[in-house]
Amino acid sequence: MDNLIEIKNLHATIDGKEILKGINLSVKPGEVHAIMGPNGSGKSTLSNVLVGHPAYTVTEGEIIYKGQDLLALSPEERSHAGIFLSFQYPVEIAGVSMTNFMRAAINAKREAQGLPAMSAGDFLKLMRDKRALVNLDSKLANRSVNEGFSGGEKKRNEIFQMAMLEPTLSILDETDSGLDIDALRIVAEGVNKLKRPDTSTLVITHYQRLLDYIKPDIVHVLYNGRIVKTAGPELALELEERGYDWIKNPQAE
């Protein structure tokens, strides 16, 4: 089957410093890939480059998504094409209500698809249905985006937005960090419910525990800007037991 996304020899810099040093990674429709690796390896950098964050410069390589050159698309076009990032640090937006924010997002996507704006009634129903998926309090939906949300609420809010936008490729950047075990379960179950045979997920995490719920097909280890190891789900368990040192210093084996 064709790849949903194919990353070839990707190099990227921020403020002139090279962080990604030749990433190769392909994901097929329906697959779940886990990306693990110590702090500072470049995992968030990879996520940000995939969604077109302007602070990063791609210096080499290419990304083919659904057969087209992803790097040629603006961040919003990538979103319309079905790419979603659950941010490691969701942004607080004072004064913009969740409702207005989501309405703008949904209607921007519909406009890109040549559809008319959603009716107020349909929109509110959609909000209600998707909120239930991650147990997001209706009070939060009336507040400003992420403002005053606890760490766990912010992460649930990311998955709520994912549910609203129904992406084809979801990137979850440490969506499990800061979650207690109940919240983790809710978030993971939400992600699983949203899974369709043609959608793919990149799960960035340090810990096995999220992968107990969201079962990866393939596990990669990203270290120092490169993917240094790729294997099946058993690799995550091995990392849980042994840590990363054996990967950082392969000669010490």
């Binding site: 961040p75 942004v91 207005n100 703008a104 921007a108």
Partner: peptide, 27 residues
């Protein structure tokens, strides 16, 4: 305007202009 907020909104599909309007409107 908060660049992080602008980018966050763009990631959700909102054009940069529209995102700017939302932030100015909130302000």
């Amino acid at each position: 305007l908060d660049e992080n907020a602008l980018f966050y909104m763009q990631q959700r599909g909102i054009s940069k202009d529209e995102a700017r309007h939302l932030l100015m409107f909130a302000f």
